[in-house]
C-alpha cells in the first residue's frame, strides 16, 4: 500500500546530487536516536556483564555473575509468569470488548459521537493519576465500597495477591479499551459496504455478517491491536509502580518493575541490566511471532515500501 511508484524515480544525475544533500537531513534524528536509543540498547547488554551499584563511579567487568544470579533466582520465572498472566488476561478481556465497541461506534448514529467523546477520557490520564484514583477508590476503609456500604466492593483489593492481579487487569482494560475500540472503529469503517450489501442479498443476518465479513476483514487490525497490547503489557511500569509497587509480596512484580527494583532499590545494576536484556528479547520475539502470524503489520509494510 505504500510502495514507491517507479515512474517517479529521478534520473541518475539528480539522484546522486539530491541524495547526498538529503542524507544530511536525517543526521540530527539519527544522532539523537543513536545516542539515546541504540547506544543504550548495546550498553544494557554490556552492563549485564558488569557489577555496578548505580551510585559510585566504578563499574567492573564480572563476566556471567549477574546472569547466573538472575537465571538461578526464582524471582525471574515468577516475574515472567506474572507478566505473561497480565498480558494474556488483559488481551482476553480487551480484545472482544474493543471489537464489539469498535463495531458499534463505527455506526453513523449521532449520539455515538457523544459516546466517543466521553469514552476516550481515560486515554488522556497519566497512569500515575489513574493508579492514584483507583487506590483511593478501592480503599477498604475509605473507598467507594465502604462509603456505599456495598460488601462485595469492600474488599482488600490491593492486599490480596489474586485480587490485586484482577485489579491491575481491570485498570489496564479501563485505560486501553477506548484506544483499541478506536482502532477497530477505523478498521470497520474501511470495510467496503458492497460486501455487506452482497451478504444481505444472500439473506445473511447481523450475526452472520459479523462472523463472515467483519471479523475476517479486521484481521490486520486485530494483529496491530494485539501487538500493541502485548508489547504494552510487557512494559507496564507506571501503573503497577504507583498502584501496588509490585505487591502484595511479589504478586504483581512484572518484568519491568523487577528491573527497576533490582537496579534502583537493591542497587544491583548488573542483574537489572540482565533483566532488561530479557525484556528486549521477549519483546522482539513477540513482535516477530505476531508479524509471522499476520504476514504483515504496519512495520512490515513500511519495510517493503521504503
Amino acid at each position: 500500500m505504500v510502495t514507491v511508484p517507479p515512474r517517479g524515480r529521478p534520473s541518475a544525475a539528480t539522484r546522486v546530487r539530491g541524495s547526498g544533500a538529503l542524507a544530511w537531513l536525517a543526521v540530527p534524528a539519527l544522532l539523537v536516536f543513536v545516542g539515546f536509543g541504540v547506544i543504550p540498547l548495546l550498553g544494557v547488554l554490556a552492563l549485564s556483564f558488569t557489577t555496578w551499584d548505580g551510585l559510585s563511579q566504578d563499574i567492573t567487568f564480572s563476566g556471567f555473575t549477574s546472569w547466573s544470579a538472575v537465571l538461578s533466582d526464582p524471582g525471574l520465572p515468577h516475574a515472567l509468569w506474572v507478566t505473561f498472566l497480565i498480558m494474556a488476561l488483559s488481551w482476553l478481556v480487551q480484545t472482544p470488548a474493543s471489537i464489539l465497541i469498535g463495531v458499534f461506534l463505527a455506526g453513523r448514529q449521532r449520539y455515538r459521537t457523544l459516546l466517543a467523546v466521553l469514552y476516550f477520557i481515560p486515554l488522556l490520564l497519566s497512569s500515575a493519576a489513574i493508579a492514584i484514583t483507583y487506590k483511593a477508590l478501592l480503599d477498604p476503609n475509605f473507598g467507594l465500597g465502604a462509603g456505599l456500604g456495598l460488601d462485595f466492593l469492600t474488599q482488600d483489593w490491593l492486599g490480596d495477591g489474586t485480587l490485586a492481579m484482577g485489579v491491575v487487569i481491570f485498570i489496564v482494560s479501563w485505560q486501553f479499551i477506548p484506544f483499541h475500540s478506536l482502532l477497530y472503529q477505523g478498521g470497520v469503517r474501511q470495510i467496503p459496504r458492497s460486501m455487506y450489501e452482497a451478504a444481505e442479498l444472500d439473506g445473511a443476518g447481523r450475526v452472520r455478517k459479523f462472523f463472515s465479513i467483519t471479523l475476517p476483514q479486521l484481521k490486520y487490525t486485530i494483529i496491530t491491536s494485539s501487538t500493541l497490547m502485548v508489547v504494552g503489557s510487557l512494559t507496564l511500569f507506571d501503573l503497577i509502580f504507583v498502584l501496588t509497587a509490585g505487591g502484595p509480596g511479589d504478586a504483581t512484580r512484572v518484568l519491568a518493575l523487577d528491573m527497576y527494583k533490582r537496579g534502583y532499590q537493591a542497587n544491583l545494576m548488573g542483574p537489572a541490566s540482565a533483566i532488561a536484556v530479557i525484556l528486549v528479547l521477549v519483546g522482539l520475539a513477540l513482535a516477530l511471532f505476531l508479524r509471522r502470524l499476520g504476514g504483515r503489520d504496519a512495520g512490515a509494510s513500511q519495510l517493503e515500501g521504503a
Partner: peptide, 30 residues
C-alpha cells in the same frame, strides 16, 4: 525523497527496529 539512498535505507531500518524494541529496557544505560 531519496528512497534509493543506501544510507537513508539503513537509517529507516534502524528507526523501524526502534518500534519493535521496548525502549524502557534501555533506561539503565541512559
Amino acid at each position: 525523497r531519496a528512497s534509493q539512498n543506501r544510507f537513508l535505507r539503513s537509517v529507516n531500518w534502524l528507526f523501524l527496529m526502534g518500534l519493535a524494541i521496548p525502549l524502557q529496557a534501555t533506561v539503565i544505560p541512559i
